[in-house]
Design a protein around this nucleic acid. Structure first.
Lengths: 213, 213
DNA sequence: TCATGTGAAAGGCTTCACAGCT
DNA sequence: AGCTGTGAAGCCTTTCACATGA
């Protein structure tokens, strides 16, 4: 019986992490796994695994463990990764094009339905995936027409807020922001930051600390 | 006077976030900024900004605010982004090559010194940046010889642990893992995960929640 | 008066420890 | 006996509120 207490955000991210080894275990025909083994594969505490899952119901069998297939399906249902999602891309640089081309990406049900750029020299060009790059001025209209649910922003930083605005005008539900600036958005639009340079600077800080010892 | 209490990890990540608007404000010649304004630009609480900075010393002037140039330099010094870092890349797919080519990347002092792949068809090929792809069997030796400090892993998941092992054999200090599996590493090697699919699944979960209302 | 720096309070997340099933 | 599910404890992070200083 699912509980309705508020789910911690870290829990959601870990569910995604748990699903990776489960996919591999399913292929290798292992029927059951304990919270301790799964935790080991994911680098977390076993109690954490059990608590995370318990937010959504009782998936395990006491004295036995979790049925791999059942648990994986349950997680996919919770995360809503068991269906396809329509995306678009704003800003077609190196990072943007590499995302569109990713094999893994399409396999997981993320369908890129449109690509935009404000650079007139890029508009009209065809991408490897078959999409034609449209002008940024078409964003709102196209997002609405094609029912696009998620927008990826990989523009230069100073264009990011404008891109976010146009995506929201088109009624987008979520934005994944790869730029270095923070985007303001309405409450009904969920924004997630994926600024890689923050990861790098965190890494570099810790390296420096290790060196000092 | 810097304190020596333990610094929270979230604080380090926010320092990186604070530095972005500061760079822009410096260019626009604004001399001083308050914690409230900076917090607004970064989407955090003003007290958070002050507390984060206070871990490292007293950078502000009461009744006035923070000197933009001084603060930015201080943050760069803390994060150790005021010098160059030697990187290498293991796994030359779409994502890997786009990272190497990123303009922003080199500008921030990250120098890609070597690129590896286990696919014999890719070994020997030249990348746009001028580097020649080496065999994965050269990883340890090259990392040690060139003094490479950071390794990026963008291989398929099942090759990631092996790549991490070879990087550590070469004495690498930090690994940025873009794959979907968790990597085990020695304590003296700092590992950061940058699995994009976790971001996507988090986004999709929240979209589903918004839809339900 | 204004904005920083900082103890104290509040809030949130993780871990423990054991009750409860199989 | 073995492993899950969970209240309670512990730890970490954020926010408040005000003393402090320009």
């Amino acid at each position: 019986m699912p509980k309705e207490s508020k789910i911690p955000n870290p829990t959601i991210k870990r569910l995604a992490v748990y699903s990776r080894p489960l996919e591999i275990l399913l292929e290798s025909k292992l029927p059951v796994i304990s919270s301790e083994k799964l935790a080991g594969l994911c680098g977390v505490n076993p109690a954490q695994v059990r608590k995370d899952l318990a937010y959504f119901g009782e998936f395990g069998i006491r004295g036995v463990g979790y049925d791999v297939r059942h648990l994986l399906n349950a997680i996919k249902g919770i995360l809503a990764t068991d269906r396809e999602w329509a995306l678009c891309l704003v800003g077609i640089g190196h990072l943007g094009s590499s995302l569109v081309q990713s094999e893994n990406f399409k396999k997981r049900g993320y369908i890129v339905k449109a690509a935009f750029d404000s650079d007139a020299r890029k508009v009209g060009k065809k991408l490897a995936c078959g999409l034609t790059i449209q002008s940024a001025s078409c964003i709102s209209q196209t997002v609405r027409k094609l029912g696009i649910e998620i927008g990826l922003i990989t523009t230069p930083p100073h264009e990011a807020q404008r891109a976010a605005h146009l995506l929201q005008e088109g009624g987008i539900g979520a934005i994944l922001n790869f730029t270095t600036i923070q985007i303001r958005a309405r409450k009904k639009c969920f924004v997630e930051n994926a600024d890689l340079s923050v990861k790098f600077e965190n890494l570099v800080y810790h390296l420096e600390q290790l060196d000092k010892i």
